[in-house]
Write a protein that binds this DNA or RNA. Structure first.
Length: 364
DNA sequence: GTTGAGCGTT
């Protein structure tokens, strides 16, 4: 018959953080690169993450035609590949592309994370949330955020799975929960820079009943704990100091569950302003080196951040990245902005997407 | 009895 069947579309996303777009499949089951490029300009191929593999796997490409993997197009979300080298393009665009690619790669490391659930019915409670997502795998965290005054749900929450496969599945679709469509996303909460000199870890989102002993008992599994500090009166955070700096660093950026609560571990802010300035400089250099590593480009410690590993970061871009690291807003990175601050600065926008007027030369 | 885009923590 002429009726369209399932399998007519492939879910494709820019990366694991962005929403997927459905791209039509040809009648013979193949996918044209030109159709992918219609949604993702510049796309030259696809990759995906098989459930049984920890690495990405490339999709077979012959003469502009992409051939489905063994499990077919429906088995997972596919990710867009772009040409690494765009030297024929104008230089400004090249720089932007490099930084955007690098920052995206840094943010798509495969790891289990808390997931934000948006659009929950105001009536949904944590038990119902856990029950719903239990169909995808073992749920180790279920939270509904409430208004502290009224005690009522704010319509969003967080879930966390025990395994990465369940997380990928939950992220790949929209969810009907309690009669409403809900979105599940990787949280875009603030990214905190890592500082190799720092042996203190900030522990955020601590419940009020956490004691210093609770924290010490949990964190001693990672290495020798030399101090635990919980401010009084209660301020919902604490600090762990390790004897070993690399132990502290390895924990920063993770979410861990202690006594059933998800806490976020981040680099502690240095105690005084002088140390803070010093650490910002180290942080920027460290991050740029990290970007190079993420792209598989060697960037030795002696290299200057503005011309290393084939990158050509302009001062404006370094400023944008520095600002992003300090504010957690990556929206301006890669567009040559970020040097302006205050009310006139561009507002935050969707991750990695330049604002509509970025090509224009603004009047100064 | 109200609401509907967002994002938890220094």
């Amino acid at each position: 018959g002429t009726k369209r069947s399932m399998g007519d579309f492939v879910k494709i996303a820019e990366n694991e953080r962005d929403d997927a777009v459905e791209v039509p499949v040809e009648k013979n089951g193949t996918l044209l690169v030109s159709n992918v490029a219609a949604q993702f300009p510049g796309a030259c191929g696809l990759r995906y993450r098989p459930l049984d593999a920890q690495s990405y796997r490339g999709v077979r490409l012959v003469d502009g035609v992409l051939h489905p993997p063994g499990d077919g197009w429906k088995s997972c979300v596919f990710f867009v590949n772009y040409p690494r080298d765009l030297r024929s393009q104008e230089k400004r665009k090249l720089e932007e592309s490099d930084v955007v690619t690098a920052t995206k790669l840094l943010c798509t490391e495969p790891r289990i994370s808390d997931l934000v659930v948006l659009g929950l019915p105001f009536s949904t409670n944590e038990e119902e949330l856990k029950d719903y997502f239990g169909a995808f795998g073992t749920v180790v965290l279920s939270q509904v955020k409430n208004d502290p005054v009224t005690g009522k749900s704010k319509g969003f929450g967080f879930v966390r799975f025990a395994d990465y496969e369940s997380q990928l599945k939950a992220l790949s679709m929209r969810h009907m929960i309690g009669g409403r469509w809900c979105d599940v996303k990787l949280p875009q909460s603030k990214m905190y820079p890592q500082d190799p000199e720092q042996n203190r870890v900030f522990v955020g989102r601590c419940p009020e009943d956490f004691t210093a002993e609770d924290l010490r008992e949990y964190f001693c599994q990672f290495g020798e704990v030399t101090d635990v500090y919980i401010p009084k009166p209660f301020r919902s955070f604490g600090f762990i100091t390790f004897a070993n700096e690399s132990v502290a660093q390895s924990l920063c950026g993770q979410d861990v569950i202690i006594k059933g609560s998800s806490v976020h571990l981040a680099t502690a802010e240095p105690k005084n302003a002088a140390m803070r300035r010093q650490s910002r400089l180290a942080t920027t250099q460290n991050t740029l080196a990290g970007l190079g590593a993420a792209l598989g480009i060697g960037m030795n410690a002696a290299a200057t951040p503005t011309s290393a590993g084939g990158f050509n970061f302009t001062p404006a871009m370094v400023a944008a990245m520095t600002q992003a690291l300090q504010t957690g807003n990556w929206g301006n990175v890669g567009m040559g902005g970020g040097q302006r601050q205050g009310p006139e600065a561009s507002p935050p926008n969707a991750y990695g997407r330049p604002p509509g007027n970025w090509r224009g030369r603004s009047r100064t």
